[in-house]
Design a protein around this nucleic acid. Structure first.
Length: 475
DNA sequence: AGCACA
């Protein structure tokens, strides 16, 4: 026969219902493979992206004759098999079935396994996850957990098609920044399929939800018992309040010292303790108030605002799981204002050295690094205009200004007494000439809520008064 | 352009 003589090579391999395809375009998809092969029969399995160049694949037909028909067709066809315009070479595979074709995560199902990279469990609330994945269909259930792979979530949809749509759209994408805490960087979603069909959600908790059963009991122990092991806004409303705030400081172009924080947070009540520390390369601070309500007021008022103009040192506030900080009474990273302290004795930072003039109030006077907080009461009282920005910050967002009740030196602190916040609840700005200290009114930083003509902006020490004062800290 | 270990 002419065919046997002309195409002997085609019969050097025993036919198999598994075909080996090569010279595929890079990272050819299952769909493209199926599209090419489906005309010849039912495809029961595929394996893409095989080989060093990931340009080979296997296709397994349900029936041997289907594979034969495909090989035969392209053996005599004037048009070669093509994917994306690239000629694909087809042979019988030397195996007769595709074994272990897919990792379990590649087997489609109605439940997605989502790995949220680059975040801690507390950074992405279950509500945010629900919001993101609800775009593709009704989310039945969500379970989140932490494994070695990181923070993961199981998302249950009605069917595999919905799950696939969500996977195709979101795999490799990121949760929008505006849904995440400020301190979170890039956060990529890695999505595969779970082998689960129906998640067994026992409680509505900060870690799991069953949206098909709103009556499911809320597991408070899961929240309270864990005492909120996470630092981020975990489930927004679910986050238990605390008298201790956790502040993440973003875009810290200028030093944020204990004193600076004390000034800012004292506007809402007595600050008992402060601790500054680094976590994941980010400066964070814990600020302890006597009571939850004060912390809540401060959190509400300061969240998203910047200590300095220009989007510098933006505060992101959550409730800490701590209720009573154990900090050194005096260090450059912590302060305990509840222990009796003698204002007359200047505190000297051994690291920064005694570089402040004697005119500085003892407790507030020094900032490590040499920056001075030189209080001038006359200036304070003479500069109320720029700290008042009516309308930009509703006064009703916090309660009646608390009276600072410092047990010791703080009671006479010029900050507390002259703090415009204490007297004028419409503003949170605290600006000192020469002192990089005003909480501007730009939640989110990017969208200015303060008009350019805002007196606050004009009065910003960054904007004009004394920019060099900040330079020693960095760069 | 020539066979897979997820």
């Amino acid at each position: 026969m002419s065919t046997s003589t002309q195409h002997q090579f085609r019969y050097t391999q025993t036919p198999s219902k598994v075909l080996h395809l090569r010279n595929l375009p890079w990272e050819c998809t299952d769909d493209e493979l199926v599209e090419l092969c489906r005309p010849f029969g039912k495809i029961v399995n595929t394996k893409c992206n095989v080989g060093a160049n990931r340009n080979q694949a296997f296709v397994e037909f349900a029936d041997l004759n289907q594979a034969i028909s495909m090989v035969s067709y392209y053996a005599s066809s004037s048009e070669p098999a093509q994917v994306r315009g690239k000629t694909v070479y087809i042979q019988y595979s030397n195996r007769h079935e595709i074994v272990n074709n897919k990792s379990p995560g590649d087997v489609p199902g109605n439940v997605l396994l989502v790995t949220i990279e680059g975040v801690e469990a507390g950074d992405v609330s279950i509500d945010v996850i629900h919001l993101v994945f609800s775009a593709f269909g009704f989310v039945h259930k969500i379970a989140t957990f932490e494994k070695t792979a990181g923070f993961q979530a199981l998302i249950q949809y009605t069917d595999a098609d919905t799950a696939a749509a969500a996977r195709n759209a979101l795999d490799g994408r990121s949760i929008p920044r505006y849904l995440l805490p400020e301190h979170v960087g890039a956060c990529h979603l890695r999505i595969s399929y779970s082998a689960h069909r129906d998640l067994n959600i026992k409680f509505q908790s900060n870690r799991s939800r069953d949206y098909t059963n709103p009556m499911l009991p809320v597991n408070h122990t899961a929240i309270d018992g864990a005492l909120q092991p996470v630092v981020g806004p975990d489930g927004k409303k679910i986050e238990p309040e605390s008298n201790v705030l956790l502040a993440s400081i973003e875009n810290m172009q200028y030093a944020v010292t204990v004193d600076v924080l004390h000034t800012v947070f004292s506007a809402f009540g007595t600050v008992q303790k402060i601790a500054i520390f680094e976590k994941n390369g980010q400066t964070q601070a814990l600020i302890q108030y006597p009571v939850v309500t004060t912390a809540a007021t401060a959190k509400e008022a300061l969240e998203g605002h910047c200590i300095y103009d220009g989007g510098y040192c933006k505060l992101h506030l959550t409730y800490s799981r701590h209720t009573d900080l154990n900090v050194k009474a005096f260090s450059d990273k912590s302060r305990d204002y509840t222990v009796p302290q003698v204002p007359a004795v200047p505190w000297q930072n051994p690291q920064a050295g005694p570089m402040y003039p004697g005119t500085a109030p003892a407790l507030q006077g020094q900032v490590p690094g040499g920056q001075m907080l030189s209080w001038d009461p006359a200036q304070q009282t003479a500069t109320p205009s720029y700290v008042s920005a009516p309308g930009t910050y509703p006064s009703h967002t916090y309660a009646a200004p608390p009276t600072p009740a410092y047990p010791t030196a703080a009671a006479s602190s010029p900050i507390a007494q002259s703090n415009p916040l204490v007297h004028n609840a419409s503003s949170m700005g605290i600006t000192q000439p020469g002192i990089p200290l005003n909480v501007n009114l730009q939640p989110g930083g990017a969208s200015p809520s303060v008009p350019a003509s805002s007196p606050l902006m004009q009065a910003s020490p960054i904007a004009g008064a004394s920019p060099p004062a900040h330079q020693p800290y960095f760069s």
